[in-house]
Computed example of a mutant assay.
Amino acid sequence: MTTELLIAFIAFAFVTSVTPGPNNMMLLASGVNFGLRRSLPHMLGISLGFMVLVMAVGLGLGQVFEQVPQLYTLLRYLGATYLLYLAWKIANAGAPDNTVGERSKPFSFLQAAAFQWVNPKAWVMAIGAITTYTPQDNFVVNVLLIAALFALVNCPSVGLWTMAGSLLRNWLGNPRVLRGFNIAMALLLVVSLYPILADVNGVL
């Protein structure tokens, strides 16, 4: 991989990781409701789960979708359904200090990692990284390099959203204000489904 291609890929990884999407909306809400420390497994699960997804796409899963496009379509709509469920959970989240019930628990590492497989933006990012920035020479090595670099860039990028949410905790201490914030985050998560429902292709 040339230096120019490497710089271009890092820019791609940063922009696609830091811009709004399902992961970042969920991390912003998690930062508000649970704080930065309790949201760390969520952040790490996103980055490492996405790294595995990129490797899987590069090592053959992308070709399966090319041969059976109906599988990709099915995955997109399963992902959309799950995102609607997550939006409902965020809208009904309890107060930051609430320790009762399922709503008081942030995403675990495994939950966040597994979520990448039904996150439509993650699939678009992974396919874009492999098809655009991965040289064919020493392809397997380059796939592993791309996946590892993406994870390294992704973690601090999504962490900015968690940190922003954590900084808003005091301002959102009023239960009514917090309720409004969570509903707004849920709506933004639903809005992030627009490219899927409108059947838009390209990087989100």
Rank of each mutant, 00 (worst) to 15 (best):
A148R: 00
A113P: 06
V100K: 13
Y77K: 08
Q67S: 13
F150L: 12
L78W: 08
I90V: 15
T162I: 01
G79K: 03
L83V: 14
L145R: 11
A91F: 01
G159M: 08
A112V: 09
A122I: 09
L86S: 09
P175E: 06
N170M: 04
C155W: 12
W117Q: 11
A114S: 15
L178H: 13
F65R: 02
P106D: 01
V158E: 03
M125L: 07
L110C: 11
G173P: 07
L74P: 01
A95E: 15
A80F: 05
L152A: 14
A122H: 12
Y85Q: 05
L110A: 12
L84T: 15
L86E: 14
L75C: 03
S166R: 03
G94A: 07
G173K: 11
M125T: 04
Q136F: 09
G79F: 04
L71F: 11
M125R: 00
W123S: 08
L149R: 04
S166W: 12
Q111Y: 06
P135Q: 08
V141A: 09
C155F: 15
G159L: 14
V68T: 01
A129F: 03
T162S: 07
P175K: 06
L149M: 13
Q111H: 11
L83P: 05
P96H: 11
F115N: 00
V177F: 15
Y77M: 11
R76H: 14
Q116N: 10
L168V: 02
Q67Y: 06
N174P: 02
A147C: 07
Y77G: 10
T131G: 04
L86T: 14
L144M: 11
I146T: 02
S108D: 01
G128L: 01
T81E: 01
R176F: 05
L110V: 14
W171G: 10
G159F: 02
P135W: 00
M163Y: 11
I146W: 00
I130L: 01
F109Q: 05
K105Q: 15
G101S: 12
A114G: 15
M125W: 00
F65W: 10
L83H: 02
R169K: 15
N170E: 12
A93F: 03
V153M: 10
P69C: 13
K89F: 03
A164Y: 04
S108T: 15
L167G: 15
C155S: 10
F65N: 10
T81L: 09
P69T: 14
W171R: 11
S104C: 14
W161A: 08
L86V: 15
L167E: 10
N142G: 03
W171P: 00
N174C: 05
G101H: 03
T81W: 04
R169F: 09
L160W: 00
T73S: 10
L83M: 12
A122S: 13
R176T: 09
N138Q: 15
W123E: 03
T134P: 01
G128H: 00
P175F: 05
T73D: 02
L71H: 01
R179M: 15
I127W: 00
V68S: 04
Q136E: 11
F139A: 09
A93E: 02
N98R: 09
P96I: 03
P69K: 12
R103P: 05
V158H: 01
K89S: 06
L178K: 15
N174T: 01
W117F: 09
L84G: 12
Q136H: 14
P135Y: 04
L84S: 05
V124R: 02
S157Q: 06
F107L: 13
P106V: 04
S108A: 08
A122T: 05
A93T: 07
A87Y: 12
